[in-house]
Design a protein around this nucleic acid. Structure first.
Length: 885
DNA sequence: CGATCCCGCCACATT
DNA sequence: AATGTGGCGGGATCG
């Protein structure tokens, strides 16, 4: 039949090929009214001769050859497709005649020629990127399909993705309205914001982890995560065309997936997302069970989406090399920064996530998301998560090592956390920006309180707080905190092999007068920090490049701390890490890094949140607790300078040795009891609202606590009153620099602290910086660096932090990160943060959820202790801060 | 052999 | 019921 048709067609083909069609379409729908035209296609070939008919003919009947040829032709024209370059010959062919089949076949079309990406390019070539506002271009699916010589089904694939980015909107059946990229930026911004809320943590998490491990998320933890599911994140219902009309439907997964996928990029610090990670994340949200087949399907869809995005010039394919090998990944090459992003009005509704609302929902969610995020950053994140195996097993196919499972678990936890965060956020309405890169937004509440550990005083005994007053005279411990309690963290040091405690036993922290914060140092997990930092950066949208470049340094710095146990295991990985770094360019270095972080979190303990915070804190020192950490610390400390090594560290984690990691993790968990280093903030008058303690190490417990106890502290991060931010007094512990030192420039020590200075901060708030290493010389700029920040500073710490972090990261060293971490929290400005706002209760649930982070053990602990912990925590809090709840 | 991903069946949604 | 949409995954290709 085809032949037959073809033959006929052939003669005419030229005609059909002719531009005419194109022209029509481009401008507006030509003849067709918006209404769905009759389908020509179907009709058999009534009148072949009409132009339309021809098209139809082509489409329906056209033999593949025909199509190919056509495609080629079109391709040629305007578009330059990068890749395909198809056969030059095509020119020859352009004629389409039937004739030379031979050639055809030769050239034929390779699959590539028929690829969705190519098709999309052709499609896009038909319409102006920035159409005049006046002209509305309608797109008839049938026409396009016929013109492009593909089945309509394929067009749907393209259009759905474009629609998710609002480049087009559906007007009616078979009719789409072309908007072009005018709103792309806004859309991306929105997605970024939404993404931060939803995925910030995860991404961070993953990236770090992932690298090493595989992540699998297997399980679903859906429970927590539910949120996202349904609704289209952004639906924009934008006025334009939109019709909402059709909201209908089920969520169109492709559309949603596309948005989510984009979000992952926007949230990622590295801007590189591997397919498997994306698939896991997406699967997770949507469903629980992840089975292999599902995974495969998801990946397939992601390829479809990726092809379209690639055609749009938003992403490009890259390969990430991990220990295991190279994995396909995509790097975001589109715009990264969107003006103004962060702040939103605080008022955002609490709403939350997403209810699955449908139509309305769509819009709403979007907004919501946007709003929410802004303010707070959440640091924390996943740390705590551990593998809980208790939860269900994952279905995921991956058989791999247990590690993976763990990872998966972590992932799940992460997810859960994220969910929790969201909720919290909603509840609280406060938003965090995570300083970290992850930018997760976690609700404060989320933060886990260090359950076990003690915060402050109590536990701390070990804590080191060597406050060095000398250094900083100003600082004084605020109130209650008994400094004494704080002792040097030696332990940590002990841990470290060298004996050098990374921690800094001596490090003094500086206190700012005003503030009442205190830091305690527990083991920190460097990794986390690092990660965090990076994350932050991501959030900030740091360019990937920057990351790439920076990473090493940052890592190193972080690494110094890194120690944290979990990560520690990672060490091994180093090589891999390096590699990645080396590769840098596209390669998602960052991804690699993760492992440690991951682990560390776990180590921290069950509670993810706690962990997270801890991590950050950790950055400062840490290590004691986890064995590994110490090591890491040592290394770092010892080697501080070598960037490479450091890099390795960070990266390493992933790479290779996950296995150990697992073990470590578990161990870590066990270890968890790091030394506690905490950061404590007193509530001084000004602060009333916030006081935070962080335990760097804390394990899980802490985390968990946080949840429940929220009010006071949970967060690992330091909260700064918005106002407070203004000036921060920073406290730094000069000490440790050495280890960290990696950074070329800087020396940390003194310098470091300087960095923090955070330019803008208000005096009130005190900031603590982790003792150690924190500073990165380079970093220093950071604070200042962010030019942007200045404005914001006050209000949102997080942003600032983030930025700073980002900057830091980029630039420097990890160190910054640490400090940053601390800062993270912020509240919306003023009032907001009273403890009250935070509600513990809910959190508990979250924490409890299986998914949550901690390792099982930790959990147990937590659970068992939770109550206790909480109470203790509270007490602690109380003590520390003014009032407890 | 794993990475890609075309192709089109088929279910569900709309008309 | 016809047609529009689009989920989904087999299996062909590519590298």
């Amino acid at each position: 039949e085809n032949i037959f048709d073809r033959s006929r067609m052939a003669p005419k083909t030229p005609i059909k090929n002719e531009p005419v069609d194109l022209s029509k379409q481009k401008s507006c729908t030509p003849e067709r009214n918006p209404i769905t035209p009759v389908k020509l296609i179907d009709r058999p070939q009534p009148d072949p001769w009409t132009p339309t008919a021809n098209l139809k003919m082509l489409v329906s009947a056209a033999s593949p050859d025909m199509r190919d040829r056509e495609k080629k032709k079109e391709l040629f024209r305007p578009i330059e497709n990068s890749e395909q370059s198809d056969t030059p010959d095509s020119l020859q062919y352009d004629m389409v005649d039937d004739c030379t089949v031979d050639e055809f076949e030769k050239q034929r079309p390779s699959r590539k020629q028929k690829s969705l990406g190519l098709l999309c390019q052709k499609f896009l070539a038909r319409y102006p990127s920035y159409p005049l506002s006046t002209e509305k271009t309608t797109i008839s699916l049938d026409e396009v399909a016929s013109i492009l010589g593909v089945e309509r089904r394929r067009i749907y694939d393209i259009v759905n993705v474009l629609e998710s980015l609002h480049l087009v909107s559906r007007v009616a059946k078979n009719q789409y309205c072309w908007h072009g990229r005018h709103n792309l930026s806004q859309t991306l911004k929105t997605l970024q914001e939404a993404g931060e809320l939803q995925y910030g943590e995860l991404m961070t998490f993953f990236q770090h982890k992932e690298q090493d491990l595989e992540y699998k998320f297997g399980e679903r933890k859906k429970e927590t995560i539910p949120d996202s599911q349904d609704r289209p994140l952004l639906d924009f219902s934008e006025p334009d065309c939109t019709s909402a009309s059709a909201n209908s439907r089920k969520d169109k997964s492709l559309r949603i997936m596309s948005q989510k996928f984009v979000m992952l990029f926007l949230v990622s610090k590295t801007k590189i997302v591997t397919l498997d990670i994306a698939a896991k994340i997406l699967i997770e949200e949507t469903q629980d069970t992840v089975d292999h087949s599902k995974f495969k399907t998801k990946v397939r869809r992601l390829y479809d989406i990726a092809n379209v995005l690639t055609s749009l010039g938003l992403i490009k394919k890259v390969h990430v090399t991990e220990e295991r090998g190279r994995k396909p990944a995509f790097k975001w090459i589109g715009p990264v920064e969107f003006p103004g992003k962060t702040d939103e009005p605080r008022g955002h509704s609490p709403t939350s996530d997403p209810p699955p609302g449908t139509q309305r929902g769509a819009c709403a969610p979007y907004q919501i998301c946007a709003t929410g995020k802004q303010r707070f950053t959440r640091h924390a994140s996943f740390n705590g998560a551990q593998p809980c195996e208790g939860t269900r097993r994952k279905v995921s196919s991956e058989p791999n090592s247990p590690r993976q499972k763990r990872q998966d678990e972590y992932c799940s936890k992460m997810i859960n956390l994220a969910a929790v965060c969201r909720q919290k956020i909603e509840e609280d309405k406060t938003i965090f920006n995570s300083a970290r890169k992850p930018s997760v937004t976690s609700p404060l509440s989320l933060l886990p309180v260090p359950g076990d550990s003690d915060f402050c005083v109590n536990a701390l005994p070990q804590a080191v707080f060597p406050v060095v007053q000398a250094d900083v005279p100003n600082l004084s411990l605020p109130n209650g905190v008994s400094r004494q309690a704080l002792h040097p963290c030696t332990p940590a040091a002990s841990k470290t092999e060298n004996g050098k405690p990374t921690l800094l036993p001596n490090q003094p922290f500086l206190c700012l007068p005003s503030s009442s914060l205190f830091m305690l140092c527990g083991g920190l997990q460097e990794n986390n920090l690092r990660e965090t930092l990076p994350t932050t950066g991501d959030v900030g949208n740091r360019s990937a490049e920057a990351q790439a470049a920076v990473p090493p340094a940052a890592c190193q710095k972080r690494s110094s701390h890194k120690c944290a146990s979990p990560s520690a295991p990672v060490d091994d990985e180093e090589p891999a890490a390096k590699k990645q770094t080396m590769e840098q360019s596209d390669v998602p270095l960052s991804l690699v890094v993760p492992k440690k972080p991951f682990e560390s979190p776990k180590a921290e303990s069950t509670p993810g949140s706690g962990c997270t915070s801890a991590e950050h804190l950790e950055a400062f020192h840490l290590d004691h607790a986890s064995p590994s950490a110490p090591e890491a610390a040592h290394k770092e400390s010892t080697k501080p300078l070598d960037s490479q090594e450091q890099e390795k560290w960070s990266q390493n984690k992933d790479p290779d040795e996950p296995s150990p990691g697992k073990e470590h993790i578990s161990k870590e968990n066990a270890h968890q009891p790091f030394l506690p280093q905490y950061l404590f903030v007193q509530p001084t008058a000004g602060l009333s609202s916030f006081n935070f303690l962080f335990s760097a190490n804390q394990a899980p417990g802490a985390v968990s606590l946080a949840a429940s106890q929220l009010p006071s502290l949970s967060v690992p991060c330091v909260v700064v009153p918005s106002a407070a931010l203004a000036s921060f007094p920073l406290v730094c512990s000069p000490t440790i620099t050495g280890p960290l030192s990696p950074v070329p420039d800087g020396s940390f020590s003194a310098a470091t602290s300087m960095n923090f200075s955070m330019s803008g901060l208000a005096s009130t708030t005190p900031v603590f910086i982790g003792t150690t290493a924190v500073v990165t010389p380079k970093v220093s700029p950071v604070p200042s660096v962010d030019p942007q920040q200045p404005a914001h500073p006050t209000l949102h710490l997080s942003p600032v932090l983030a930025r700073s972090c980002g900057a830091v990261k980029l630039d420097s060293p990890v160190c910054m990160g640490h400090p940053v971490t601390l800062l993270k929290l912020q509240q919306p400005s003023s009032a907001p943060l009273t403890p009250k706002s935070i509600r513990p209760a809910h959190h508990e649930a979250f924490f409890k959820t299986p998914g949550s982070l901690g390792d099982p053990v930790a959990w147990k602990r937590n659970e068992g202790n939770q109550t206790r912990n909480a109470s203790s925590v509270q007490r602690r809090l109380e003590i520390s801060s003014t009032s407890p709840d």
